[in-house]
């Protein structure tokens, strides 16, 4: 188990270094940082001095090593457009995105597993058919359309919920949360639904399919033959076996929810990292772009690591590691 964790960790680091290299090369291919920083009025002398001071005359492996060292400490330089440290910008925007993404993930996995199990157990029921049909809409409608549709119904027509922004936020240290005020909570509802709806339907369909598969397994038949109660067979024996593959997909989906909340953030004018990135792209703000790239990679690496470790909790066959292979 320990060796496995180390191996996963090493793989994660390798991924991060590779992505860092891509983020690093962006600086070299997208514009000249010296020109960006000094403007067009500067003299040749100024430029050479700045180039030397920034270490841009060093060989690229040294520059890359320096970039890695800074990145490891969360430093990505200064935004070209806003003139502020990228790390500060990210720290400022991170709470909004995380709050949105985590709530969406909880909404999607919680309700998704629940509905999936229900639809699997009552396969032919009317409610199951309604759930399955609705889920098709969720899988096929693009996120922005769902967002705009929700805004139209709940913000424009019914006027129940705000259509943009985070509402009032409360600062807790460097973290800002919308969960402690009523307007903050209200503002979260529509974006959370929008961001989570696709994941919800995906997870639900996955849980249903997996569960139906597991319910056909021999050990379920054997459990029935032992007289175990139906509820116990469904919710103990079958569900736990169902969750193993579901954890993988749900984990990866959580990663993409955090990383690619861009569309939802744009639709709802949500002041998160996605919006920051979209603005950065428009102005070729390379430090922000490369920092965002690193952030996305880090999220996926962390999520994957967590999923790998979750397997150990869920599946005893992995815990005994190598012995299994030799087994019978």
């Amino acid at each position: 188990m320990f060796a496995f964790a180390i191996r996963s960790l090493a793989q994660g680091v390798l991924v991060l270094v590779t992505v860092a290299f891509i983020a690093f090369s962006m600086f070299r291919f997208v514009g000249d940082p010296v020109v960006n920083m000094l403007g067009q009025e500067a003299t040749q002398q100024d430029r050479q001095e700045l180039t030397e001071r920034l270490g841009l005359n060093d060989p690229w492996p040294i520059q890359f090593a320096r970039f890695l060292g800074d990145a490891a400490q969360g430093e990505f330089g200064v935004s070209y457009r806003q003139g502020r440290k990228v790390s500060d910008l990210i720290r400022e925007r991170l709470p909004a995105t995380l709050e949105l993404a985590v709530l969406s993930a909880i909404f999607a996995t919680g309700l998704g597993v629940l509905l999936g199990v229900y639809a699997a157990i009552n396969r032919t029921g009317f409610v199951s058919n309604v759930i399955m049909t609705t889920s098709l809409i969720g899988v096929s409608l693009p996120t922005f359309l769902i967002g705009i549709g929700l805004i139209y119904i709940f913000a424009v027509e019914l006027r129940w919920l705000p259509s943009f922004g985070r509402g009032e936020v409360v600062r807790l240290g460097w973290w800002s949360t919308g969960l402690l005020t009523e307007s903050g909570r209200k503002s979260l509802i529509l974006p959370v639904l929008t961001l989570g709806f696709f994941q919800l339907t995906l997870i639900m369909r996955l849980v249903r399919a997996e569960m139906l598969e597991v319910m056909r397994a021999d050990f379920i038949r054997f459990a029935r033959a032992r007289g175990i109660a139906d509820r116990s067979i469904e919710l103990r024996h079958a569900l736990r076996n169902t969750l193993i593959p579901v954890v993988t997909i749900a984990g990866l989906q959580l990663g993409s929810v955090i990383a690619f909340a861009i569309v939802t953030e744009t639709v709802f004018q949500w002041p998160g990292l996605g919006a920051l990135f979209v603005n950065a792209v428009q102005f070729a703000d390379v430090p922000v772009m490369s920092a965002y790239l690193m952030f996305v990679a880090a999220v996926f690496v962390i999520v994957n690591l967590t999923v790998d470790l979750l397997y150990f909790i869920l599946d005893p066959r992995l815990r005994s590691g190598r012995r299994v292979a030799k087994g019978h």
Partner: peptide
């Protein structure tokens, strides 16, 4: 259900798949 297991026990062909792997 009260008969199964209690008054009639069953043994299936494949012991590899008869047991729940997670318990």
């Amino acid at each position: 259900r009260k008969i199964r297991g209690r008054r009639i026990g069953m043994i299936f062909q494949d012991p590899l798949t008869s047991l729940n792997p997670l318990f």
